[in-house]
Simulated scan of single mutants.
Amino acid sequence: MKLLSIIIPIYNVEDYLLECVESVCAQTYQSIEIILVDDGSTDKSPQICDELSKRDARIVVIHQENAGGGAARNIGLSIAKGEYIAFVDSDDYISPYMYEKLISILENDSSIDIIECGYVTVGENEKIIFQQNNNDEILVRKFSVEEALVAHINDTSFRQLIWNKVYRRKVLNEVRFPEIKGIDDEFWTYKALGNAESLGLISEQYYAYRQQNQSVMHTLDAKKRLRTLEAKTERHKYIRDKYPNLISNSAASVWFTALYCGQLVYLDKNISNKKEMTRWIYANLRKCIDQDNCKNELNWKQRLWIDLANINFDFTCKMRMILKIGL
């Protein structure tokens, strides 16, 4: 069996860490190494990691000063030995059959470099029991890179989520996370997708994604969420250079991400100069997309919003916020 490296960045998750790691240790796919990267936790997470490593020789623990999830994942990637790579967030848990099912697809089709499964969202204290799929024939939808990137841009599948996938190591050799605190997967996933020969998708749900009020995605303020817009503009430059057929899709995504960020500015009580901030967003938006046309990808309502934004971006963001559109 080929080795799978599972990288788990950890920061102050003492309430969920044991459940997470035990679900990984219980995998029916046995050829695994589990890399726990403690990112300077101040709770009992470091001690839990060390105790877990004593129980299971497949667990490797690294302790580092707090540098963010991206830096922790990069450390994991730098020492991973597996031919396959996977990520798990430390407050989530997975089906015991997840990696057996996903890797069997990679083994059966050497052209598929990334395989993605479905996931279920659970509450902070919710626990689900995964059912084994006794059907040997799992329906695999196969995507070309361009098809996967369209789905990624449209946020229908192959989303920026890194943890419901298994990657062949070769597609990640030169792909690393930005070492910032906050959003990092949005800067990373499209590059991994772009390195694949083809990709596979199954609908079976093998991953439990825990929604916490204190998670990164629930605590970012408007200024920090501008990192999302930065990620989309970087992705647009990548698309323009490597996949010009997808420029229209990408430009539309940047437009509505900018509008979303403008709406968040008006919802953020800590920002006093709201109009100045939305003007800054619009100026950077126009620099990014230049004359790239996206309207042929949009319906008439979406085209109307872009026309309004070009007339008065600040007013359009305010109107969408009041109408609660896109939030």
Score class of each variant (00 low, 15 high):
A231H: 10
I105K: 00
S250G: 01
D307E: 11
S53R: 04
I103M: 02
Y243M: 00
D136N: 12
I114N: 11
Q132R: 11
K274E: 09
I94H: 06
S31G: 00
T189E: 08
A148Q: 12
G326M: 08
G262K: 05
S53E: 15
D155R: 13
I128K: 08
G82I: 14
E83S: 12
A283M: 02
N134P: 04
I153F: 08
R303Q: 15
Y16K: 05
R210V: 02
L77P: 01
K101P: 00
S110E: 13
A222P: 00
N133V: 11
V120P: 01
T233V: 04
I75F: 11
D136K: 12
V122W: 13
T28C: 06
R168C: 06
N125P: 00
R225V: 03
V88M: 06
V13C: 06
I7E: 02
P46W: 15
A258I: 12
A252K: 15
C288V: 00
I183Y: 10
I129A: 14
E204W: 01
R320W: 12
N299D: 15
N133M: 04
S110A: 14
N213M: 01
I153H: 07
Y16L: 05
V254S: 03
V24A: 02
L172R: 03
I138R: 01
K127N: 11
S23N: 09
G40M: 02
N12W: 09
T316Q: 07
S203V: 04
D38Y: 04
A151M: 03
K224C: 00
C49Q: 08
L304C: 04
R225L: 05
D268E: 08
S157M: 12
L308M: 11
N310S: 09
F158I: 06
S5H: 09
Q131C: 08
N173S: 15
A67L: 04
N135H: 09
E230V: 07
S31N: 13
D92T: 10
I281H: 06
I59T: 07
E107T: 12
Y260W: 08
L327V: 15
C294Y: 05
K191M: 05
K2H: 11
F187Q: 00
F177H: 05
D221R: 04
R235C: 12
Q64I: 11
L267N: 07
E19D: 14
L229Q: 11
E116C: 11
K44R: 12
Q30C: 05
L199G: 03
M98T: 04
N164K: 05
R279S: 10
Y29G: 03
Y97P: 03
Y167S: 01
G70W: 02
K242D: 10
M98E: 10
N245C: 08
I311F: 13
V216M: 13
